[in-house]
Nucleic acid binder design. Sequence first.
DNA 1: CGGAGTGTTAGTCG
DNA 2: CCGACTAACACTCC
Length: 286
Amino acid sequence: MPELPEVETICRDLSRVLISRLVVNIEVKKLGLLRNPLATFKRYLVGATILSINRRAKLILIKLSSQYVLAIHLKMTGQLVWKSPKGGLKVGGHPIINTYDVPNKFTYIIVCLSDGSKLYFNDIRQFGYWQLIKSDELNSHLRHYGPEPLGVAFTFEVFNSNLHKHNKAPIKTILLNQTVVAGLGNIYVDECLYVSKVRPTRRVGSLKENEIKNIYKAIKQVLSKAVKARGTSFNTYVDALGKSGSYWNKRLVYGRSGEKCRICAQIIKKITVSGRGTHYCANCQH
DNA sequence: CGGAGTGTTAGTCG
DNA sequence: CCGACTAACACTCC
């Protein structure tokens, strides 16, 4: 699930409960999810204090007092559940798991904190990973990512020039390319192209400047709206009225194939573009 | 029951 | 370099 708005929401929520906590233990049930040896986690995560939690692209970056950063990627089905000893719960990640009882059969990593709370990592498909990176090597680890779409470095000129490194590919494929712009995934790419009125299959080289401007604006607009809605499809405070990400109800095309376009009432089509399910309105998008 | 599809991305191959 | 394809894995849906 998690694309930029979801990961952003998870980081903000976890910041409120994890910062300045001391890590007292880690239990790992699937070593394959760790990108470093377990001993490295014991040495640099256990005993460290959590200093900050930030997002870059779809990566969660947890800065530690040990001069390391814990990078967590949720990929398709990763989920983080934080539980306080009093039963307070925060959940961020994939919604398929319909119970937030933890640990459960998909819980592969558990981090115990000094206040008695625990952070659980669930991941049905086990594509996600945890990686410890030396703080001074973080920038070089992240260098292949393109600009943050909601940041100041993401100007139209940068976007336009990054796009035109890939003139022959369909625009959808290129928007999913994290080196062009970081953080978009399948849902938000379909949403952005719908808002821009551009078909996902259009070759980049065929786009007029005006169309690229519309895509550029749509990326910013759709993502900020989704961040405000706390993302698409995961729960947060289960104890605060079970509020969940509300963008799902606001989505315009993703997952609406066979339903009517909200603008022209034509039936939304579903095709495959570079292996990904792709939704669009053939009447509104050209 | 079998096969396709699932919100990601790193790696391979042409 | 570019782009197409696949594997990593487990589950749901048709």
